[in-house]
Amino acid sequence: MKPARFDYARPATLAEALALLAQPDAAVLAGGQSLMPMMNLRVARPALLVDINRLPLGEITLAGGTLRIGALARHAEVLASPLVALAAPLLPQALAQVAHAAIRNRGTLGGSLSLADPAAELPACMLALDATLVVASAARGERRIPAGAFFLGLYSTALASDELLLAAELPAAAPGWRFAFLEVARRHGDFAMAGVALALGPNAARLALCGVEAGQRRQPAAEAALAAGDPAAAIAALASTDAMDSPELSAAHRRHLAQVLLRRALAHLEAADAAA
């Protein structure tokens, strides 16, 4: 299928882009790796495509203990970035499992976070890494949203329709913290049937799941158990997640996988510790 008609604009400045996004039925075109398939299937029919690929939003910087990844950073760039490997080692673990090389050449961090696909890896990583998302609109200027308040549900975020995600800011990995991203997928590069993003620190933990609940969020009960040094309780806590139910993948199936993956993630970190 071919897309339904749309208008197209390619702003050269952020201000221009934000002005365009204030128009009705405008959609941001970044990497296009999710939007274009939906448009080709005519599931998405924006009136106006705002192509932000010319905006200078792809930078990756590390300063003052904060890793800032621009929304237009391509998956392949984030995956290969030494700064990211240093300050957010969870991300390369996850990105190696995101889609395929050609998709990673085009797909962007901002696109993945803005779409909030429940099965996507990067939202879970942002939650587990305690990211802050920087967004802007013409009407209200810039605001900063903690990841926990950004992801609201199935394909739903705190981004207003006139807002653009500019960057993700992540506190650089603190000493003593360890990270694991594990997922189960039918085939290499497929969206996760279930995945866990885990940051484990001294008496603290941050845990998020993908592919399990419709809206990605931290798992406070499991985190508390992990912080208290009770992994069994943490795994048990995942039995009460509000998992999605679909014909091919039941809620019970997703919860089961989440539990298996958390146990494996913990074992993985333990083995890494033992090796170190």
Binding site: Y8, R10, L29, G32, Q33, M36, P37, N40, D51, N53, A76, H100, A101, A102, I103, N105, R106
Partner: peptide, 21 residues
């Protein structure tokens, strides 16, 4: 992946980019 082309040296899905881009 049948539609692969190189854009500025990188392999991309030709069906997920617009010609105007």
């Amino acid at each position: 992946g049948a539609c692969h082309v190189r854009v500025d040296g990188l392999v991309v899905r030709g069906c997920l980019m617009l010609a105007v881009q």
